[in-house]
Design a protein around this nucleic acid. Structure first.
Length: 299
RNA sequence: GGUGCCAUAGCUCAGUUGGUAGAGCAACGGACUGAAAAUCCGUGUGUCCCUGGUUCAAUUCCAGGUGGCACCA
């Protein structure tokens, strides 16, 4: 029998969790969460982790599996999920990956190129240099070390420049040399399902969900991790805005409306990314029967 | 009721010595290979409150109206 990974994607707030439970139940599968913030055990409310009841219904993986203090990356996620599936496909023929973290989904489905890990000290040194000298000197350095990448990349984006420089300096080879952009073969079939609806409805749901998060204690949750606000894991919608409020830079009301706004912007960004993926079969939320019908015919 | 000030983008406001207008924020569109809920890029979307008047030409000047704010009654 074929092993299949069903991949359920869509913008935040569309209702992926609800749909995923139906699909998982039908195919007797477990769920692999693909969410770059739900993996942190310190975060629950602001990341919209499924409820205890939902988690009890279907076995979930990669939720609360790491700590905000751990270093994590899309590549690590790729490796961990592939290792997990390899071991688990003995038990189930079908697994369901659900989430909205675009790069993570891509890493699992298509793979990302093998590039050596970066030494944290080097990263910090480059960051310091960026702080003190600005982006221009880093840009010049990259131009020398990797002219090919320099000519194609977004030169105004510090993260792109820093990343490329890190690899060039660490390996002594151009960063672009590592990028094959070749799709990796997977030992299982992948079927992608996308959920989307009108912008108006989606945005209304997002706004409501943020209000619910606040009522459920998001402020308290954010307060608990506030001492670690500099961690990358906490550079996340729902937390950074509240940190601003704790710092006294905004009112609570402003912070909440900023959370709504940033969540809407994030949803839009996800839609833009997913639109490009021609392998996604699109459905409206609630079309579970149609989704299951399509899955049955393609598994 | 009287006097004064104001009315321009979704919001806050610039501006046009008369030639139909532009900033910030929002919004919208896009990029994306180990930080990705991150990071970055692009786009002005307009009955310049309404009706008349002066003028070749009015969002701009004038008159009246409407709405808002302030002060005086």
């Amino acid at each position: 029998m074929n092993k299949t990974l069903i991949v359920l994607v869509g913008p935040t707030g569309i209702g992926k969790t609800k749909t995923s439970l139906e699909i998982a139940k039908y195919f007797n599968s477990e769920i692999v969460s693909c969410d770059s913030r739900q993996i942190y055990k310190e975060l629950s409310i602001g990341t919209a982790v499924p409820s205890a009841i939902e988690l009890g219904t279907i076995k979930h993986h990669f939720i609360h599996s790491h700590s905000i203090h751990d270093y994590y990356s899309a590549s690590m996620f790729e490796n961990e999920v592939l290792a997990f599936l390899e071991a688990k496909f003995i038990q189930h023929d079908t697994y369901l990956m659900v989430g909205g973290s675009m790069l993570y989904i891509d890493a699992v489905c298509n793979g990302i190129d093998n590039i050596p890990d970066v030494d944290p000290t080097l990263r910090q040194n480059l960051l310091d240099k960026f702080e003190s000298e600005g982006i221009e000197s880093l840009r010049l350095q990259l131009k020398q070390l990797d002219p090919a990448y320099y000519s194609t990349t977004d030169l105004k984006n510090p993260k792109r420049i820093l990343r490329a420089l890190e690899i060039c300096l660490m390996t002594g080879k151009p960063y672009s040399g590592f990028m094959t952009r070749q799709k990796k073969e997977r030992p299982f079939k992948i079927v992608k399902i996308g959920l989307n609806c009108s912008r108006e409805i989606l945005y209304r749901q997002i706004n409501n969900r943020v209000d619910e998060m606040i009522q459920s204690g998001l402020i308290e949750e954010a307060k608990n991790v506030y001492p670690h606000k500099k961690l990358n894991a906490l550079n996340a919608v729902g937390y950074k805005e509240l940190f601003n409020f704790f710092d006294g830079n905004t009112t609570l009301e402003e912070a909440v409306s900023k959370i709504k706004q940033n969540t809407r912007n994030y949803a839009k960004k996800q839609i833009t990314w997913f639109k490009k993926d021609k392998n996604i079969n699109w459905f409206a939320p609630g079309e579970n029967q149609k989704i299951i019908k399509l899955l049955k015919s393609s598994i």
